[in-house]
Design a protein around this nucleic acid. Structure first.
Length: 173
DNA sequence: ACGATGATGAAC
DNA sequence: TTCATCATCGTA
C-alpha cells in the first residue's frame, strides 16, 4: 500500500489515466477513512485539447491545471455538481484526469457528493494532510479489463478531440 | 426529454 | 452587465 504522489502523476496524462484504474481514492471525513477503487477516468491533455478547460488558456480558474502534478482541480459543473480532477505532467503543461467513477458510484457528480468533495479541495495536493489522496493497494489490472472509449459530454470539442479515446473504464467481472 | 442551478468567459 | 455555455443527475 503506497501513497501516489508527484512521481506517479508527473508523466504523460493518458498513461497515468490508464494506470489510475484499480488504484484507490481515499477520503478522510471526520475520523472515518473510506477508500474506493477507481473504475472510470478521462484524460484532458493540454491547451490543444479542445475538450479541456485549458483550451481557453491560462485564467484564474485554470491556473491549477498549469501547476505541479499531484494537485486537485475541483470545479462546479451545471451549477450543482463538483468535478474532481488530478493534475498531471510537468509545471506549465495543463493536463488533468477527471475521476468519473469509483467502485459503487458511477458518475463524477455522484462520487464527489458521496465523498463530500467541493471547492475547498481545489488546489490542494493529493496527500493525507488534505484528507483526500490516492493509494496503490497492489492490485494488478489486466489490460484486457480496460475499455477505451471517447469521452462523455464533449461533443462541443470538434470532430478530432471529441473522438479521442481518452476515457478508460475498468470492466467489472 | 428536460429542468435545476451557478460559475465562467466573452461579448457588448 | 448581460448572455450563452456547460467534463451532470434525477425525475418523467
Amino acid at each position: 500500500m503506497k501513497i501516489l504522489g508527484q512521481k506517479f502523476f508527473n508523466r504523460p496524462v493518458v498513461k497515468v489515466s490508464e494506470e489510475l484504474l484499480g488504484k484507490y481514492l481515499v477520503r478522510k471525513i471526520g475520523n472515518r477513512e473510506v477508500a474506493y477503487k477507481i473504475t472510470e477516468v478521462e484524460a484532458y491533455d493540454g491547451e490543444k485539447d479542445l475538450a479541456s478547460h485549458s483550451s481557453k488558456g491560462r485564467t484564474p480558474r485554470t491556473e491549477v491545471l498549469y501547476g505541479e502534478a499531484g494537485y486537485f482541480y475541483v470545479y462546479l459543473c451545471y451549477g450543482m455538481y463538483w468535478m474532481l480532477n488530478i493534475v498531471t505532467e510537468k509545471k506549465d503543461y495543463p493536463s488533468a484526469i477527471l475521476i468519473r467513477g469509483i467502485d459503487g458510484f458511477d458518475g463524477p457528480g455522484k462520487l464527489t457528493r458521496k465523498l463530500k468533495i467541493d471547492r475547498k479541495l481545489n488546489g490542494k495536493s493529493a496527500e493525507p494532510a488534505s484528507k483526500l489522496w490516492v493509494e496503490d493497494r497492489g492490485e494488478k489490472i489486466d489490460s484486457k479489463q480496460v475499455k477505451k472509449t471517447p469521452r462523455i459530454g464533449v461533443a462541443y470539442a470538434g470532430p478530432i478531440w471529441s473522438k479521442k479515446k481518452y476515457r478508460f473504464v475498468l470492466s467489472k467481472f
